[in-house]
Design a protein around this nucleic acid. Structure first.
Lengths: 194, 194, 194, 194
DNA sequence: TCTTAATCGAGACGGTACGTCTGGTCTTAGA
DNA sequence: TCTAAGACCAGACGTACCGTCTCGATTAAGA
């Protein structure tokens, strides 16, 4: 077994700095909010030169995105519990809880950046939006395979409506993301039962 | 009937400057995009002092919001065509067309600001989000009254899902907002038919 | 004898506003210092429109100059006491006292303006510098006529040196303007005695 | 002997920018005059960020003062020529010539600032006024030691009168600073001969 | 009494410069 | 070559005043 230690010349990247930057990003975001957070503040908080950040990320949004995804509780798993209703309720329960916390604030900032910067939008969609939507589509396909949804049900668009409802409330409409809402969505989806 | 001509002392606000600022905002946004647009550029384009902008608006976002809502074709009417399907299709047709144009770019910028600034978010929801959602709910209630939707259908949450699907694609998921999508949404909504 | 009441049509100048402006100028100068004093602040303090100030004066310096000269104790008289020594001592005593007070601060500001603005410098010299110098020259000529100064003494340049010493300390060199200084100048001037 | 190379971390100050700023200051002052000169114009002329100026100087006056003193021909030397008369004449000759040029305009602006800003006045007196006065006092003391001035002559106040005459004409009284004036002052000083 | 004309307080206007802030790059010495 | 530090150029930020303008209201003298 060959040692695969990708050996470039020069001093290797400092993993300590890498982690310090991510942690500092979280800390500063918590204290200042997304907009007020600056690369300078992150560098100062991490005890790191600004150049060290710019060497590895191209913008505040990129750092924030990595900080968000590195956060353990961020990726809400889509569990296979055996029924469409419990699959969705289980997912919403975890997702809503995460969005109500500081991950929510961070995510709102990241979405804002994606809306303002097409290049970052592409990254964000690739690493965040598309995989999660794929998982939801998969969940719905399992349900369809089990006969819980009619064969004619347009899974793709149903996924847009389910995620849409969540994001609409999260980003735009000032209404709570709670268990009641989750149950109401599931109830509406149930009309597509075979 | 008494003449209600609200008379404050001092030179009155210049309507010419007011309009010049809104038009300049549209022009600069078109040329530079939302993020690169600055108050300075708007002032220069409008031939107006920066103070005149700050006197009447508190941020770029506020100006952009007024410029957007002053744009005639912005407010997409919810027509009463007599059937749920055609009401929705008619609405989507006009809405999608507007979002595909420069209003879409402007609106993405405004949403980004709302995500970054809670104070502006409140304004945006009040003047933009809430009225439009109310119109959709009204449309659905008409349909329910006509017997096109079952009495048990949760209109509020259905509205969140319908608008959610639109906004999800507009803001987050890179898929087209076209007639096909409109028809697919309408088809899914139809499962709630009485 | 014709009534010379220069009668122009239209509303005549308000003497109340005139005085209010001069008094407000003094008040604001005292509180804020010369540099921080603005036409806007004077107008606000006087309860007067800015236009009313600009109608009658062309700059802050002009207003300040009138406020200074309107101040009663400003113009220090050159008394004829019968001897050169007591003439000079008497003058210095009054002059130094005035300069040590708020007139000094005001005068420093006015001199600064004169240094920065040639047009105002001309006005300042005409109404302030030249008349005072003429009075000193006259004082010295009386002394020469009385035989207290030799006939060859260059009165003009001696005046420059006497006033120069005063202004040098007042404007540039941080040393006190007091009785001792006055006596020392007089002592040096005495070497020109016949 | 220890190498005293004061080593701070980080990028060192750019001497090129430092010099460019001083030169640009001179250039802009020449073209625009003191009052119309702005930090923005200096920064633009020097091809430098405004922050770089504010990092090292606290105001336009500070930059102008350094630009003036960096100007080689500014500091007029007090030569020891062996006689009071020629010492003074030699000094005045050089001093007057300098004041008639653009150094004079610059100096007038700096004095104006000193009159308006007590903090800057202290700096200006320390680096400019006091050393020059000390040199003049020294010159007069040499003359006194040589017996050219009586022992009772108050050197300090005589210095105030000599410099006073020069500054009075330079700042306040519109009369030329020329060789005649220099000779006239020297003639008056001569009355203190032993 | 009505007209004319210049004044008044108020405050919005187009501008300019301020001093601060942030972004992203560069330049040191040292690891 | 990477690191921390921090100076660099660039330029937008929001503020403060400038001196001008535009209101309605006021105040005289002459019609």
């Amino acid at each position: 077994m060959v040692q695969q230690k990708q050996q470039t010349p020069g001093r290797p990247r400092s993993e300590a700095s890498h982690q310090a930057i991510l942690q500092a990003t979280i800390d500063v975001l918590k204290q200042q909010g997304y907009r007020a957070t600056t690369i300078e503040a992150i560098a100062a908080e991490a005890g790191v030169g600004k150049k060290t950040i710019y060497r590895w990320w191209s913008s505040k949004a990129e750092v924030a995105l990595e900080a968000l995804t590195a956060h353990s509780n961020t990726h809400v798993p889509f569990l296979d519990t055996g029924s469409l209703q419990s699959d969705l309720l289980s997912y919403f329960e975890r997702s809503f809880e995460s969005l109500r916390g500081e991950s929510g604030m961070l995510l709102r900032g990241i979405v804002a950046e994606a809306l303002l910067d097409p290049a970052f939008a592409a990254t964000f969609q690739r690493v965040f939006i598309v995989p999660r939507r794929a998982s939801l589509v998969e969940l719905l396909q399992r349900a369809q395979a089990r006969g819980e949804l009619t064969a004619e049900t347009n899974i793709e668009v149903l996924a847009d409506m389910i995620f849409g409802a969540k994001w609409y409330r999260f980003l735009l409409y000032p209404a709570p993301l709670d268990t009641t809402f989750a149950q109401e969505i599931v109830a509406l989806v149930s009309c597509h039962r075979a």
